[in-house]
Amino acid sequence: MSNEKVVTVTVNGSTVKLATPAHRTLLEALRHEGFVEIKCGCEKGDCGACAVLLDGEPVDSCLTLAWHADGREVTTIKGIGQPGNADPLQKAFIETGAAQCGYCTPGMIIAARSLLKDNPDPSLADVKRGLSGNLCRCTGYTRIFEAVQLAARELRGEGEAA
């Protein structure tokens, strides 16, 4: 049962080979490879801390079997932007104070990134709905909403985040 298989995943542009059995989640497999920027909060799709983009679409990596990522592209928070080349969302999170303990932040930015791709001009209600799968216990979400809308404005060319 459950033989290992080598799956090839492109993570933030680099090819990674993961030898895993069928029952290994993408979260477990990638964290084991050192992609510890993917956080683990509940392992059952309730908190969104482990969100990554899989071929550009947001998934909870704790609910995704590693085998299902074979041949696909994974983007973690580090693939969204780097210091010096930060994504507008990352800049806006800094500017507005949207990160407190920071543990939900990678997953939150992944979800927000996908939201803004689908909807460049989200209303507050759209932002709330778009982030309802990402739990945060520190901020009351208010600054996160601000950050997402600030980044959206910058992406639409209507102003600059920080």
Binding site: G45, G48, A51, E57, P58, V59, D60, L63, T64, A111, S114, L115, R129, G130, L131, S132, G133, N134
Partner: peptide, 12 residues
């Protein structure tokens, strides 16, 4: 579908 779980779960 709109209020089905959270965004990531809706993808899957």
């Amino acid at each position: 579908a709109e209020i089905f779980a959270g965004r990531m779960v809706r993808t899957a």
